[in-house]
Design a protein around this nucleic acid. Sequence first.
RNA 1: GGGCCUGUAGCUCAACGGUUAGAGCAGGCCGCUCAUAACGGCUUGGUUGGGGGUUCGAGUCCCUCCGGGCCUACCA
Length: 517
Amino acid sequence: MSEPYYITTAISYPNGRPHIGHAYEAIAADAIARFHRMLGRDVRFQTGTDEHGLKMAQTARDRGITPKELSDEMSSYFKMMCDSLDISYDRFIRTTDPDHKVSVQALWRKMVDKGDIYLGRYEGWYSVRDEAFYDEKELTTGEGGARLSPQGTPVEWTVEESWFFRLSAYQDRLLELYRNHPEFIQPEGRRNEVIRFVEGGLSDLSASRTSFDWGIPVPDSPGHVMYVWVDALTNYLTGAGYPDLDGALGKYWPADVHVIGKDIVRFHAVYWPAFLMSADVPLPKQVFGHGFLLHKGEKMSKSVGNVVDPIELSAVFGVDQLRYFLLREVSFGQDGSYSEDAIVTRCNADLANNLGNLAQRSLSMIAKNCDGKVPVPGDATEAETSLLSGIAAAEQAVRQHMTGGQLAIHSALQVIWEQMSLTNQYFAEQQPWAVRKIDPARADMILYYTAEAIRQLAILARWVMPSSCDKLLDLLAQKPDARDFAALSTRLEAGKDLPAPVPIFPRLELASDAKGN
RNA sequence: GGGCCUGUAGCUCAACGGUUAGAGCAGGCCGCUCAUAACGGCUUGGUUGGGGGUUCGAGUCCCUCCGGGCCUACCA
């Protein structure tokens, strides 16, 4: 069996509908997962929802339904988003899944056995109305000097019993991990921040709550439910069959990469490895903190009203168009900016004009002049040789960008699209439409090599735009099992019947009411 | 308060301390007609945020100022 590859996204907290940021993370992780599948790896890709906690319980109460009913509904929106964006998850995990409870409680017991869990007190300013603790500096002073929460509700100093995790004991081992495995936290900037944070000293972590009950119960401790991060992070292990890592799914652990947003790097790069060290579970190989998507350079927020529904966007511009745009336009790891305007510009230039039109013009020439069959290649000249060797070199560059620990998705795409431009150049220089009049065999040959280049380019881009590239490969009569990187070296078969060509990437237009958005 | 990152052509970004700072998109001109008014060629455009310094040589290193962003911290 081929080498396992386990990749996860963060699980989303479904107290609202999914937004473009959720879509971005899912798309990026999906592309990486598909890339490794095309490389022949045995890929396991997991995403899902994190459903416990106070907020969900409150919202459910407000709506007069049970937390489970609420999370069933909300989780389904996230699953629907994944399905409509062609996210090829192997499991959509929910923290309310029965096996997750088993997994979390097993991990907890291991940490208890290690002596890393102890009973203590969690103290702070607590608002009964908000059911939340607030930091001193968040408070405001109301009438008569009363302390108020940011929501204006009264707070009182509250002492709550809580189980604590002995995080402080892991400072040295964590620093050693970061030192010995620079690739553990990526990108580089995030790594530096985490190191400085840990160097500054670690406090023990409150690991249970008694103020609400919508969560996974702490074993043998009535009234206590698991703190959110113990619960949520463990989903990655649950997906590998924990506590039975010798089972069918155990081969996927340790995970190759957790793809997450930069805001939760600390939980994944500090708490998570500490929990695992405590429980004697091998550590994941990498935590990759991607950047945020900004709308025209500004943060998205409900109050500004620039929160965009990814499903709507993909319905307007196309799923693969959205996928391509996000992965090509944003430097993976950096923050990125998007706008409908930018999507249209980028997709028209790269997809409709460069790739789509190239395919359409060459394939329709084959349809008209070659009886709809793959023409005979003949003996390649310098032009054809360098065309294909350029693409072969690009494939190597793409592999390096995607497997070098950097996950430079945008660079990989850039390299592929350079080859598309070169193929357009080849086609224009060779002028098969003119050559046909004086040397039909040579014209056939030009069309053959152009089609072959398109076949290879479609394979190279397929992990980013699965359905469009599959359509393109359909037009080249390629079988489903001839679409991975291994198939790059098997040339088009002359004489094979091709279906009538159809345009794959239509030109996009900005909806008039969306101009400038 | 401490620390990190960043500011390069209208836009998005490249440039091991080394020849006249590059590319894509956008703009302009020309060509072509096979194609989704697409493609190809040529081209306009930057005192690399300001100032100072190190160096034979600085976008690249150092200092400082200005403008963004982020992490972190119990100064009222």
